[in-house]
Design a protein around this nucleic acid. Structure first.
Lengths: 166, 166
DNA sequence: TATTGTTATACTCTATAACTATA
DNA sequence: TATAGTTATAGAGTATAACAATA
């Protein structure tokens, strides 16, 4: 698929963390590419994924907090999703400042298309691994994720450049 | 280490590719954080890693091609490394347009510090895995990387937003 | 006075294209 | 005329701060 490197250089030795990061970035890039025909970005999908679980109480403030993104950034993402008719904002009758978020029917359909596309991508990425090997890989990765306190469904890329932590 | 999510939401089901991407991004973020005291970014390290192998024939053009980054971008990265005294540009006597690149002694020292830091990071990330499990994980990942034609030492993040491929 | 969502502004990163000096 | 490296410009993405409506 990818053309071979034109400039041949002896391969440097890299560690397990690097390998993980390299493959992970590749998978994310591929996913992003395949998302284009659906007119979605990975960030949109992260939002749709949560809304597809129908948590009726979810407001923008809470969603931004959960995803670790700026509320102002979420506004733009939701504007885009709303303009496509995939997500709806409803003013909360009990607190007219807040907006309750919900995926629309077309939004759920679109998300199911993303899930199908994801299965295709995984089938290709892990084509060379047996069923047992995939399960073993998943098991190992889940333990690493748990150790790092990663939150399922919350991708670090959301807050990539977030705080300086100085 | 990381505080638990303030907003509790049932965890969405995510696949193996997502898990890989999530952990990979986390590892890359952590690496980037720990690199700060050394005044380097992951891109600088990618360059140092290749130059540490002392490929005397390497010019900027070839390095940019290998890393899949724009030559103009490489200029800035090398400016930064050169200003810190970690890399040197020498005009090629046989083609005075080209610059031969080389890591300086301080550059090699700095790279060795990065390697030490990497070992620490890996020890933490994979603390819960046994020696055999780490080897198994590495083996599986290497097969996935090979299937995807990933080039050792060339991180996709270099060309993350590169071309639209439309 | 505090909070939700929004808008405005600025900053960073990167790609594209123009430029120079050599070939 | 073409190529290596550089500089200049512009665009995308994001964070920060200011703002309006509501509590």
């Amino acid at each position: 698929m990818t053309p071979p490197p034109v400039t041949q250089l002896k391969a440097p030795r890299v560690g397990l963390a690097y390998l993980l990061s390299q493959i992970g970035a590749h998978a994310a890039d591929e996913f992003g590419q395949r998302l284009k025909p659906l007119e979605l970005t990975t960030q949109h999908v992260g939002i749709l994924r949560l809304l597809a679980m129908k948590p009726v109480e979810l407001t923008q403030r809470k969603l931004a907090e959960h995803l670790r993104i700026q509320p102002s950034r979420l506004v733009l993402l939701l504007d885009e999703l709303e303009r496509k008719g995939l997500v709806a904002r409803h003013t909360d009758p009990e607190d007219r400042r807040a907006k309750r978020l919900a995926a629309t029917e077309p939004g759920l359909d679109r998300f199911r298309a993303v899930e199908a596309l994801t299965r295709d991508l995984e089938a290709e990425l892990f084509e060379d691994l047996s069923r047992d090997e995939r399960a073993a890989l998943a098991g190992l990765l889940r333990r690493v994720a748990a150790k790092a306190d990663l939150i399922p469904g919350v991708h670090p890329a959301y807050r990539r450049l977030a705080k300086k932590e100085k």
